[in-house]
Simulated assay, not measured.
Amino acid sequence: MALIWAEVRKMTEKKLHPSVLQFKEFVKDNPKIIQEVRKGKSTWQELYEDWYLLGEDDSRWETIGTVNDSESDSSSESKVDWMSSIVGMVKKMDPNQVQGHINNLSQALGAIQSVITQFQGNNPAVGSVKPPEGPKNPFMFRKD
């Protein structure tokens, strides 16, 4: 199987423009470029055009790795800030007010359910399933 892929690769490289082959070699030497494309920060077309116009010695290629490091640090700090803001909001909540909102939501859902059952009609055989009936008093014991 590996031999087949090697042959396919050779056939496609014969058809590629020499500048594309040079760009592929440049990318192999700079793996941070691959990471930038995988993260979605750039496309291969954009990077190829920059490489073709600016050349391999441009400062853009040196800053790719350093920009990613600073962005990852800032993203981890933003996650910590987000969590601390959530914890702060939970501390400020009034339990009685939250309970009131939950009760209002429960009443609204009950009203919606009653409207839906009115539109469904009074035909219980169509979509409703009755739970099995058990004994009337499950704790009925005999006296000795």
Rank of each mutant, 00 (worst) to 15 (best):
S59D: 14
S59Q: 07
S59T: 02
S59M: 05
R60G: 13
R60T: 06
R60N: 14
R60H: 14
R60K: 12
R60V: 11
W61V: 01
W61K: 00
W61I: 02
W61L: 02
W61P: 07
W61F: 10
E62F: 06
E62P: 01
E62C: 01
E62Y: 03
E62D: 13
E62G: 09
T63N: 15
T63F: 15
T63C: 15
T63Q: 15
T63H: 14
I64S: 03
I64K: 01
G65D: 12
G65H: 06
G65E: 13
T66G: 12
T66S: 14
V67A: 09
V67W: 05
V67Q: 06
V67P: 03
N68Q: 07
N68A: 06
D69N: 10
D69V: 12
D69W: 06
D69I: 07
D69Y: 11
S70H: 01
S70R: 01
S70E: 08
E71Q: 12
E71P: 02
E71W: 11
E71R: 05
E71M: 08
E71N: 09
S72I: 10
S72H: 10
S72Q: 14
D73T: 00
S74H: 14
S74C: 10
S74A: 15
S74D: 15
S74F: 15
S75Q: 03
S75C: 02
S75T: 01
S76F: 13
S76A: 13
E77K: 10
E77I: 08
E77P: 01
E77W: 09
S78R: 04
S78W: 05
S78P: 00
K79D: 14
K79C: 11
V80Y: 08
V80D: 06
V80A: 10
V80W: 06
V80K: 08
D81K: 02
D81F: 04
W82C: 03
W82G: 03
W82M: 04
W82D: 05
W82Y: 08
M83T: 00
M83D: 07
S84R: 04
S84E: 09
S84K: 10
S84A: 08
S84W: 05
S84T: 00
S84Y: 04
S84D: 09
S84H: 05
S85V: 02
S85N: 09
S85L: 13
S85W: 11
S85P: 02
S85I: 00
S85H: 10
I86W: 13
I86C: 13
I86N: 07
I86R: 08
I86Y: 12
I86H: 07
I86P: 11
V87W: 10
V87Q: 13
G88I: 00
G88Y: 13
G88Q: 08
G88M: 05
G88R: 06
G88S: 14
M89Y: 13
M89G: 06
M89D: 11
M89I: 00
M89A: 09
M89L: 13
V90G: 09
V90P: 07
V90H: 09
V90Y: 14
V90K: 09
